[in-house]
Each structure stands twice: as C-alpha cells, then as structure tokens.
C-alpha cells in the first residue's frame, strides 16, 4: 500500500464543493428531496418541517449537515458496494456489515430530508483511492481496514461539529444520536480487524494500519478542560477514555482521496 495516498493532497475545491449551498441547490433534484422527505422518520420529519416553516436552516447548519451528508454518502456507498461484491467473502461478519449498511442508508435519508433542496449531490467515489486499496472489494482485510478508518473518522467528524450545532437543540441531538451509532460501528469493526488484540477503543494515536495514521492524529490527547485525565489512569487508558474531534478540513483531507468529483 502507498501509505501517503490516504492522507494525500486535499483537492482544493473539495471543501467548497461540499459546502457550497448555491451549487448544491443548482445541482440538486428537488424531486429527490421531496421523495426523501416522504420516507423520512417522524422525528426528523418534524425537525425538517420546523426548519422549512422558518423558511430555511441557517447557512452554518446547512454547511454542517451537507458535510455530514457527504460522509454518509461515502459510507453508504462503501458498504453497499462491499455487500454487493461477489468477490468479497465477508463470512461470519456479513451480518455486522449489513446492520452498519442499513444505518448508513438511514443517515443519508435523514440528512437529505432535513436539507431538502439544499442537500449536496452525492459525489463519485473511488474506494481504491486511486489504486491504493485495489483489493478493497475482494479482500475482507482491506475492506475492514477501510471500514474502520471511515467509522473512526465519522465519529471524529460529528464530534467536531457538535459545537456548531449548539444553537439548534433538535439538530444537535440528532447529530449526537448519529455520532453514537458511528461509535458503535467503529467499536465493532475495530474488533473484527485482522490485527491481533485490536480494541474497540483507540489507544493513543496508534493503529495497526499505517495508512490510517491521519485518522488517528491527535487521539493521544489526554487534557480536557485544563485537566490531564492521565493522572487518573495511564496515558494509554486516558487516551482510550476520550475520543477526539477533527475539523471539517481534517476530515475532508482524509476523505479526499476517495472522492473523485
């Protein structure tokens, strides 16, 4: 594997493309939005109704939701492709990935419903990241490695946006509810890793796959609110006990190699 590709250069236009409402509106199908609304769950439907009643969501919240939607598009398509691949024998882990896949589909539906016409289009993905992960849909080990990277990144991505949603209790709570599901996925996928003894939680900034280093950068932090939690255990256990956020830019740098356009 070419280790650097996963952390490779971020397409400079990517962030703008993901976050641009104007372009999203231009490219988005209003019919697709309406269909999504029709099928979305009650709680989110209420939220979306509230948002539409106000005219529109504030732009900063639209930006956060489109950022989240892009990640959910990525995860949703990744698991669908894996489960659909005749060359990928997931064996007794298949049930796990079916459950994860179903949740990612739900999340896409939720976010599309909330955003309506403001939702960004689904990008075109390349899960080999330009050939780095050529056997992603034929080798379970590679598939699980990428799943771990996407889930742990997803946890960090939602965590990093919570503060930007603090003004909207409904959307904040839904984001937290998705965040926790991503963390459940991450824990499970990590424990499926071929790496012996891989834990469901993240020790320091280490991981067994060097290509995922960027996913775990900064996870070794143990100081929160000015208190070093390592004094209540060890640096290792304290780093495990707290997951760390990533900024939007950091997440997009990680996701960039998988997004073609």
């Amino acid at each position: 594997m070419k280790m650097n590709n996963l952390l490779g250069g971020l397409d400079p236009d990517l962030a703008a493309r993901v976050l641009s409402r104007r372009e999203a509106v231009m490219r988005s199908s209003k019919m697709a939005g309406a269909l999504a609304i029709a099928s979305m769950p009650v709680a989110f439907g209420l939220m979306a109704k509230k948002a539409f009643a106000q005219g529109t969501l504030p732009q900063p919240i639209i930006d956060v939701l489109n950022f989240a939607l892009t990640l959910e598009y990525l995860e949703d398509e990744f698991y669908r492709a894996g489960l659909d691949s005749p060359d990928l024998d997931l064996g007794d882990t298949r049930t796990v990935f079916e459950q994860i896949s179903a949740h990612e589909t739900d999340h896409v539906t939720l976010l599309e419903g909330a955003l309506g016409a403001s939702a960004v289009d689904k990008p075109t993905f390349d899960f080999t990241a330009g050939g780095t992960f050529d056997d992603v849909f034929s080798n379970p080990a590679t598939f699980i490695t990428l799943a771990q990277g996407f889930e742990d990144t997803g946890v960090r991505a939602y965590k990093g946006q919570a503060g930007n949603l603090i003004s909207d209790n409904t959307i904040l709570t839904i984001a937290l509810q998705i965040h926790a599901v991503e963390a459940r996925h991450a824990s499970m996928v990590r424990r499926l890793s071929q790496s012996p003894g891989e834990k469901g939680w993240i020790t320091l900034a280490s991981n067994s796959v060097a290509a995922l280093d960027a996913v775990y950068a900064g996870e070794d932090n143990t100081v929160h609110l000015g208190v070093d939690a390592a004094q209540f255990g060890t640096a290792e256990s304290a780093s495990e006990a707290f997951d760390e956020p990533l900024s939007r830019e950091e997440v997009l740098a990680i996701a960039g190699p998988f997004i073609v356009q």
Partner: peptide, 17 residues
C-alpha cells in the same frame, strides 16, 4: 459539549463491545 461528546462515543464503543 465537546467533552461530553468525547466521552459519549467511548460509552458507545463500550456498549457495542
């Protein structure tokens, strides 16, 4: 809120395990 977020995802990891 951020600290609560840092903790809750670890609780979710525990729950899954």
């Amino acid at each position: 809120l951020l600290v609560a977020g840092k903790i809750v995802s670890v609780e979710a990891r525990h729950a899954a395990a």
